[in-house]
Design a binder for these strands. Structure first.
Length: 484
RNA sequence: GUGGCUAUAGUUUAGUGGUAAAACACGGGUUUGUGGUACCUGGGUCGAGGGUUCGAUUCCCUCUAGUCACCCCA
């Protein structure tokens, strides 16, 4: 009331007052600056997450929870063991493994010096750190294959866009110690399974083989020679790409470039014999598993350590816009390159942020938390004290219970109870607290009864049981992640 | 890293060179200790800083953030 009156007064006397009040405000501010510098400093903190970083709020958590559960199941069923490695490693680890000259290392890595003078980096991907742990802890002596699973945030200093963040989450699967292509097939099968269980549609698996580093280099040479010879037929953009990233030209959508690339040398023709055999067998396994895939001979991947098999998981929306949900491949040379014993390995990562974006886009249902069925309302100090104990009594007996401690009137508490959709509300007021009783109100029928507090759990359970009987044939009371 | 577009309440969005509005959401209330609806009521430094102006939320510049394309990727 007084506030409104003030406002009216200001309006009445027009802008002179408004002006002076504004001046007064800024005057007050400068005074505050002089008098209470500490407070002002606090005010000036930028209350904003860093660029490309974001909070995953409670509203979004059900989506994440569903993903986590599906990942955990898949991980266990395929025999992966969980591993957690540090977010920060020596920068060298990544420059050596992911590779100099890759965008990830050269342009996108968060690198900094510690107080102790170490040059460290926030992990831009998982595999390097896991390979380091594998070597450091002598995991090579364990029975092979060794399967490791990890989830967590990774960091790339990229320009943010939708589905592209500087801090984003990956789930990572790696297998060490087996070179048989059946493992390649199993890894792809696992990726398929996760995507299917998540209920995602319009997903495409692309596979390719890039052979050994040597065969790949040979191919790039031949390709570059060809493209140079056709330079005059390429678009402006691609002419520039000749110097920076010739492989990219194969992806150009310009008509004239596509005419050129249609006759370009094929990477598969330049594979060494073992790689070709490996790839052939992989495709046989995939056919045997009846897993759909397309061969994309232009698929390269942005990390240096890959050999032989590479694959990516693509999703496309209605407008035909495509983006990658995950990818991986074989990296038979990595462990040795980092100083371990030569160990074949394969793995892949899923981009969780994009997967969740895709879940929302295709309206996949998130995980449903079990909802509380009982609400505890209390009035007055004495009741408040009692209700804390009643709460734990019920909770110990497996009753999911909500409360609104600290909230004022009974009316407002019942409003909350109603909104939560609980089946029972327990009311403890001054009178009940004195009598050691409680009111048990059935929210469905609206009826209520007073019971002794030591009979409370019993009384609540009785009502819940009756209601459950009424629900018979309806939807399950506890929806789970299971497919609907 | 380069270029384009955008920025108003918790959310979605109106609007104006004279300091702001709606819907939904949220809090409080409609006399005693009982839910819904209805009704009443509360909340904004108009992204930040500077400039032009008597006066800027509105026009201009810079920054920040988001978004799109390039690039790259998950």
């Amino acid at each position: 009331m007084p506030k409104t009156a003030k406002k009216k007064e200001v309006k009445k006397s027009g802008k002179t007052v408004g002006k002076s009040s504004k001046a007064a405000k800024s005057f007050k501010k400068t005074i505050e600056k002089k008098v209470a510098p500490a407070e002002v400093t606090q005010e000036e903190i930028l209350l904003q997450a860093l660029r490309g970083m974001r909070d995953i709020l409670p509203d979004e958590q059900p989506y994440w929870e569903r993903v986590r559960r599906i990942l955990t199941h898949a991980q266990q069923e395929y025999g992966y063991q969980r591993i957690d490695t540090p977010l920060v490693e020596f920068a060298h680890l990544f420059t050596r493994s992911v590779g100099h000259g890759t965008d990830i290392v050269d342009k996108e890595m968060y690198v900094f010096n510690t107080r102790g003078g170490d040059k460290v980096a926030l992990r831009p991907e998982f595999t390097a750190g896991i390979a380091r742990a594998y070597i450091q802890h002598g995991m090579g002596v364990l029975p092979k294959p060794i399967k490791l699973f990890s989830v967590g945030p990774v960091y790339r200093y990229d320009r943010p866009q939708e589905g592209r963040y500087r801090e984003f989450w990956q789930a990572n699967f790696d297998i060490f110690g087996e070179e048989d292509p059946i493992l390649d097939a199993q890894v792809i099968q696992l990726a398929h399974r996760v995507v299917r269980e998540l209920g995602l549609k319009n997903i495409e698996f692309q596979v390719n083989s890039i052979g050994t580093p040597e065969s790949r280099r040979d191919y790039e040479k031949v390709l570059l020679r060809y493209l140079e010879s056709q330079k005059h037929k390429l678009c402006q953009n691609c002419r520039e790409r000749l110097a920076t990233n010739p492989m990219r030209i194969l992806d150009c959508k310009e008509d004239k470039c596509m005419q050129v690339t249609a006759h370009a040398p094929q990477s598969l023709d330049y594979l060494d014999v073992p790689s070709r055999e490996h790839f052939k067998r992989l495709l046989e396994y995939l056919d045997e598993l009846e897993l759909p895939y397309t061969i994309n001979t232009r698929l390269v991947r942005g990390l240096d350590y890959y050999t032989k098999t590479v694959f990516e998981i693509w999703s496309s929306d209605k407008e035909g816009k495509k983006y990658s949900l995950g990818g991986g491949g074989r990296y038979d040379g990595l462990i040795q390159m980092l100083g371990g014993e030569a160990t074949p390995a394969i793995g892949f990562a899923l981009g969780l942020d994009r997967i969740i974006l895709e879940m929302k886009r295709t309206q996949v249902k998130p995980y449903q938390e079990p909802k509380p069925k009982v609400f505890l309302a209390q009035l007055g100090d004495m009741a408040k004290k009692k209700s804390l104990r009643l709460f734990s009594d019920l909770e110990k007996n497996g009753v999911l219970i909500a409360e609104s401690f600290g909230r004022g009137t009974l009316k407002s508490q019942l409003r909350v109870a109603n909104r939560l959709g609980v089946e029972v509300t327990i009311i403890v007021g001054q009178k009940e607290a004195l009598d050691e009783t409680a009111i048990v109100k059935d929210m469905v029928s609206g009826t209520q009864e007073t019971v002794m507090q030591d009979k409370l759990v019993e009384a609540v359970k009785k009502i819940l049981k009756v209601n459950q009987g009424l629900n018979h044939g309806g939807p399950l009371p506890h929806p789970t992640v299971e497919e609907d």
